[in-house]
Design a protein around this nucleic acid. Structure first.
Lengths: 137, 137
DNA sequence: CTGGGTGCAAAAAGTTTGCAGCGAC
DNA sequence: GTCGCTGCAAACTTTTTGCACCCAG
């Protein structure tokens, strides 16, 4: 591993700004958050960060590998820390609840796709739709 | 199985219209299609179906269980026949290619989620992101 | 005939972009 | 001081909605 993300930013010619720190803190605090939610969360702490800055910052942080995003259903994309990304998302079509499970549930799938199709799965981006315990018929 | 989808429509108080037949034909012909693509495909055959009608029709057809949709990356959602849905989508983050694989690759995942989390997976809605054979490092 | 369906246009929701001024380094 | 970053507003894309007219049953 290299140094802090601040150092990594500077090393690549980017700058460390309060907005970027705030967005990253918000993603950390929220665990799961849409750009809109992240923007709102930041406004509670400081005077605010513009929504377009949130989008640009998330794009940058994703490029750096600090955050990840997934698409959970119809709505906006959801961002979370890459460090926290070691899980698979379960989305219930009944109640809309999102829960996380350990990625080893997908081990068989990953292996089957690798050996059978030469496909290297990005488990951190895996979202499984279905019905949760409470919504099952 | 009950009768045809036309009968099923009428039985539920809906009507069978040329637009609905055209949209369903387009979904069948395209195999994978965004609402926009479906709309364009229909315009090649007939005088055209409005994009909002395509959305409303797809929503209806999905409610009937005739078509399914998935979210493949940032763009619009993709619709396909439910009958054809017996597969898992692989989306390559490198070249963007979408391929289909047999659903039994996910059998282990489905079983693990069912026994471990009480979660009933909708395999037809499963989309796996990663890198395909040609894009692997 | 009747009520659901369609087209059109406008609005909503989510995301991206152009640009002038600001501030990290 | 330089040049990347930000806020603002406007554009863009995807999807939804209101409404008058139309047509399947």
């Amino acid at each position: 591993m290299t140094g802090t993300w601040q150092e990594e930013l500077r090393a690549k010619g980017y700058r460390v700004t309060p907005q970027r720190q705030l967005v990253l803190e918000a993603v950390t605090a929220l665990e799961h958050g849409t750009p809109e939610e992240i923007c709102t969360a930041v406004q509670r702490t400081a005077q605010g960060v513009n929504i377009s800055t949130v989008y640009r910052t998330l794009e940058l942080l994703e490029e750096l590998g600090l955050v990840k995003h997934t698409h959970l259903g119809h709505g906006p994309s959801t961002y979370h820390l890459a460090v926290d990304a070691e899980h698979v998302h379960l989305v219930c079509r009944g109640c809309g609840a999102v829960s996380d499970v350990r990625p080893n549930v997908a081990d068989g799938l990953v292996e089957a796709l690798r050996s059978g199709h030469g496909f290297e799965t990005d488990v951190q981006h895996l979202t499984v739709y279905g019905l949760c315990r409470d919504c099952r018929p």
